[in-house]
Design a protein around this nucleic acid. Structure first.
Lengths: 248, 248
DNA sequence: CAAACTTATCGTAAATCTTACGCTAACTAT
DNA sequence: ATAGTTAGCGTAAGATTTACGATAAGTTTG
């Protein structure tokens, strides 16, 4: 029993985006130091934590580096502290890549939600990163597939319990877009009439004067998320419930 | 910009217990290495992470050391990674206490729920630890008050969304005990008739053949928590909801 | 251009759930 | 015996959820 030595602390980020149809995650190709090794090619963006930096700040730094965005929704997933989570070739790669001599790397997973607009897509692809449909991902470098799975589980829960969905949509969106997003992430079919009713009843959506254009059906109105109304509502009511709601 | 050196990773645990009236937390008195310093006396149980140990395992180790219990409900609260969260005298104390030379200590907070039975109380008090009513705590060593506050916030949420309350009660309990616990932790008054209805409707409680004895009113029946029924229910239904429940 | 197709948006009624609260039962303490 | 307490049952009003009908407003097709 001894206190550990040469351990490193890193952050890895699962960055999610929604293209209107499916949920995507940002992956980067890692540079091999030994091209003949059988290491997986794609990984989540991540970095070692720096001196005088909190973990959330490290995640923000990684996010800005990867997407060019400063204000993104960020949430911690979990800590991945299995002593063997990176070892062998993977550990060598990390030490080479970062110029460290770590025997162990504990990482903190974060997930981020970004709006997949042209600017962001241009920035990330210019950096050689890729937006990959989440369902199609089978393996990733190190234990990043595990981190991604944990991120997805948490995202589903968060989507049901707080208005994080809006982080994935443009500022102005239609109710149908919101519905499609919920359906895609949760993997469920949603009745559009009841969805609309429930969402509008919340009072968190403000209609704009704009409507869709050029769609092959009745054009839908655009809405914006009213964060102030949400925060106010949280303060007062809203106890979400195991065995349903408590509103005693 | 350099990778950090001499950092340590620790775990700290907020261990909660319920004595039938109020929520309590386990605090330990720390040994001073310089009795004249003005450091706070009480702290949460914690430890440095060992080589070849995951963080959850470190928390389990701390818990067993503090309470003698092996199987306790454990949940991660958050990571406390402010570079200045321990510094000056506090940092000196830590290095002295653990025989380290760290410049920085990142800690992972956990909260634990234990049944405050005679055996556990005897064990902890024999160790010099104390069960302190949560509302009465004003300050703690280092940033442990902050960790405790974060633990409480999370506990409230968890109590509403999953059946963690049973971890704080004896195996056999009355519905009134459960109600008192919810009321105490959430700080709300609960109508006993509706509470009973809601709890029983969940199907997660099994009646036993035993009843209270020697109470100055109609003796209540004892129930046990049916974990299997709960797990089964989770698998099927139960999407808890922002803007209420989704059951489409 | 009319018909077909698609989604938006409004409604409504049945079913289910929540909430407030009355009432009797069964104990102990006085 | 009486008062005081909580257990435990029930019920009715009010909200919410759910399933689904119907019309509106565009584009695409023939």
């Amino acid at each position: 029993m001894s206190i550990q030595m040469n351990q490193s602390l890193s952050v890895d980020c699962a960055v999610f985006g929604f293209d209107g149809r499916t949920l995507k995650v940002l992956l980067i190709e890692r540079r091999y130091y030994a091209p003949d090794t059988q290491l997986d090619r794609l990984k989540l963006p991540g970095a070692m934590i720096l001196e005088n930096e909190t973990l959330p700040n490290a995640a923000i730094r990684v996010l800005e580096e990867a997407t060019g965005l400063r204000k993104v929704y960020l949430k911690q997933i979990d800590i991945f502290s299995d002593p063997a989570r990176v070892s062998g070739e993977e550990l060598k790669w990390i030490n080479r890549h970062h110029g460290t001599h770590s025997e162990r790397v504990v990482t903190v997973g974060y997930y981020a939600l970004v709006k997949l607009d042209d600017r962001t897509v241009a920035y990330t692809t210019a950096k050689g990163a890729q937006w990959v449909a989440v369902e199609s991902i089978v393996r990733l470098a190190m234990d990043h597939k595990q981190i991604l799975s944990a991120a997805l589980t948490l995202l589903c829960r968060e989507m049901c319990q707080s208005p994080v969905a809006f982080e994935l949509l443009p500022r102005k969106f239609t109710i149908r877009q919101l519905q499609t997003l919920y359906g895609a992430v949760l993997g469920i079919e949603i009745d559009n009439r009841n969805f609309r009713k429930k969402i509008l009843a919340s009072g968190f959506l403000c209609p704009t004067s704009e409507h869709e254009q050029g769609v092959a059906h009745k054009p839908a109105q655009y809405y914006v998320f009213n964060r102030a109304a949400y925060k106010k509502a949280v303060k007062e009511k809203l106890r979400l419930g195991f065995i349903d709601n408590w509103r005693y």
